[in-house]
Amino acid sequence: MSQPLVSGVTSERPVAFDPLADPRLYDGVLSRRVLAFLVDFTVVLTLTAAASVVIFFLGVLTLGLAWLLYGGVFYAMAVLYSGATLGGDRAATWGMRLTGLTCRQLDGTRPGFLIASAHVVFLYFSMTILTPFVLLVGLFTRRKQLLHDLILSTVILDRGRLEGRGY
């Protein structure tokens, strides 16, 4: 079933929910996003350390050639981690799961691997330029979106309220 748009034209994908219909979906999201980021950053650092050990041994085997991978190992781990978790069935990284958050696109669908990977790339890029002011954007948007959310048309929501467990 598709939703009518303008003059009888219908969209191809049905809208799962209206992300602006319930502003309570965004209550406390910004503060929980900070905690989720810290958890996820720790996970990515741990994955980077493990990958660095593997790269070291590969470097020994390749007479130092694999050591060129050290420059991008953190970014590769961040993209793979976010793509696999944020782009997965739960649409949340481990930090987001811990803090009760989930990600959706504006039409209500879950982001795929590509959107999730772009999400972390834009996050780190915006943090590099705007830190700590990257959070200020979220204070002035109705859906508590940060700059990278606005670019990718995603929203971070309270998972409990979205699933009907809210109070």
Rank of each mutant, 00 (worst) to 15 (best):
F17E: 02
Q105Y: 14
L5W: 13
T99I: 08
P111I: 06
S52Q: 09
L35Y: 11
Y26L: 01
L152G: 03
T109G: 10
L150D: 04
S82E: 12
T154I: 01
D107A: 09
V39R: 00
L38C: 15
L30E: 08
S153D: 10
L130W: 03
G87C: 06
V6N: 05
L150M: 07
S117R: 04
S52W: 08
Y167L: 15
R143Y: 04
G64R: 05
L152P: 04
L136M: 10
F17T: 05
A84W: 14
R97T: 02
G59F: 05
T93V: 11
L58I: 08
G64M: 01
L5M: 13
T99Y: 02
R161K: 14
R13E: 14
G83Q: 07
F133Q: 00
V15D: 08
L98G: 01
L135N: 07
S7G: 09
V73C: 00
M127E: 11
I151P: 01
G8K: 12
V53W: 09
A76Q: 05
L65W: 10
T46I: 13
L86A: 14
T154Y: 00
L30D: 13
G100F: 04
S7N: 14
L106H: 11
F125M: 14
T48H: 01
L130Y: 04
G166D: 14
Y75D: 06
L86P: 08
E163R: 13
